[in-house]
Design a protein around this nucleic acid. Sequence first.
DNA 1: GTATTTCCTG
DNA 2: CAGGAAATAC
Length: 673
Amino acid sequence: MDSPSDLFGRQSSLISPFVLYPDPSTALDLPRHLTPSGGGHGAPYPGANPSYPLIHHLLQPGGAPMRSGGELHLDRYNMEEEGMEEEEEEEEGMGGRLVGVGGKRLSGDALEADWSYDMMRVKRLRLESLDKGDGEIGLEEEEEEEEKRRRSAERGNREKGREGRRREREELKEQLEEARGRLKALQEKVWKAFGERPAQEEEKRWTGGEQEEDEEVGEIDDLSLPFIPSSPHFQGIARRDRKARDHEKRSEEQRNANGGGEVLLEGVLERAAVWMGCGVVRGEWERFGGEQKFAQALKQELGSAVARVIDRVLRLYTQNEPLPPSIHPFTLAPSPYQEQSEALPLITRRPDNRRNHLLPLNNHPNIRTKNPLLPPHPFPPLCQPHHHTHPALLPPSSCHKDSSPFLPPSSCPLPLPLLHYTMQQLFTRSLSHLHPLHKGNPFLPHLTPSSSSSHPSFPPLAVMEGLDRLDGGLQHHHERDGGMRGGGRDGGMDSGMYLGPGSISFFFGGGEGLSPCHLKKAKLMFFYARYPSSNTLKTYFPDVKFNRCVTSQLIKWFSNFREFFYIQMERFARQAARDGAPCLGREGREPPLRLGRDTELYRILNMHYNKSNDYQVPDRFVEIAELALREFYTAIQTGRDSDPCWKKSIYKIVCKLDSPVPDSFRLPGCPMG
DNA sequence: GTATTTCCTG
DNA sequence: CAGGAAATAC
């Protein structure tokens, strides 16, 4: 039950690197219908069932059926990402054929048996042909059969048998060809999306760059070796197959003059095939510690492949600057975010000097400033009554107050997903190559408007926002995954592969998932709506492709926001009741329990919902918070808090206080650009 | 039954 | 903040 497959259980479309960046022309079309698929209580992401057509089978080495939300998802891959349906159909077809020889979809309890059977067939056919070639390998079974046939001396029958097997072989060949073709087509799509590889790059690769390629192949092969059973049969087959494939791969690649990505993609697939071809028999699988090693290797494979792809694309990017936006890997899906600052007439920017008006803060022990990038007094006292334009914005540079220093300032929020830390690191690493000069200079005077506008959305690095959070969360998941999934002994499968729902799928081609930017936006929305309906959410997150998973995610966010809100309210109400200080404001003349903008509570709320402080907290929200505070306070004072349901009345009150969210939130992306 | 919410935990 | 369970709403 702790098989590595569990660790993949929530990932979506891992295999989707082949559709890394969806065609912009098709990325946003097609209304989506929701796919009903089980779920229910306690399953916030019932629809988060991934579709990983190619590695789906790989992920179930023991034939364990994949479960999600307590339901089996065997017969049909969840097609939640309908937009990818076409692509997936192709991939599925290919995956199915690669694994299940007969092109059938392997599923259910029969999976293991089918799998083994099919793979045995492949092996036998393969061995047969090898046998004919140089007689190097033979199976007893085969020899016996031959013997029997010879003895029977029934030529017709023999012919029949051979005919049958030849047909089988040819069928197999055809299927392989087809699979290959499909793979190629997919890869071409990818490259189309990536843009043409420059000719000189290609030349370099095949002259001076060859070595690099070799290294990669070698490295990868090394990686896969442990999974090849030591039996000479398998070793021989694997070696020869690999050689043949490598050769074929290269000549084909040369013919196509495509690029390294093809090698990478094909490599990953082919090595996966090697694993399967060599390790599918259960005994072997177990004998070689298949699960762990497989998981580890798969992780490394995917990680390194993705890293290399990214590196290459980015290298390409720097070499070819400026790229037409259409082929920029990060702008393929039109980024609404880049237009925000111009597109939001309702949003006025705060004067720059606001942030210089740092007043000393009360050093409340409860306040933690985890982010070292934040200034020592990260919170401007928003008590000036003059700045009540709302909503109000800080200048764009504020976006980077808490992001990585080497990111250009106007780079805010592409809708990159809540990438896992590992993925973020990949990006960070790659991007640090790109913008080495930006290091240590958050404000980048040398980044001219033109250069930034030629890649207005380039650094996708809203990703970096909340890195600290995710970093902390990583360990978190480590523990949890270790405890719940890996039993704490998962040798290679740390949470490096763990990705929250919608994250990697988004990145690898989902296209419209939730990003840190959306989280930010949701938090700001909370100032207006504590209980947004899913329709409201759909209205205000137009760039999000809503499916059940995403909807619950957003709803869950608001639930979390409320939770935090209520906790703070209660806490401060109790504190006020305890301290006999009903006046939270500094000025004694203030009405009781006023939430002044210079108060600790205000500070905490602002910090939570408006961390980068690029938004003016609406007066309305302050009022609501005050009201909630008073409700809590009086409930506590009057002893109503002993009633187990005492909070519910307050929730009801708060529930009615939602106000219209400003129209600026209807625009895609972050309302603060 | 499903969707949503709260509560709890990590 | 996410995940899960339980309760509740529809």
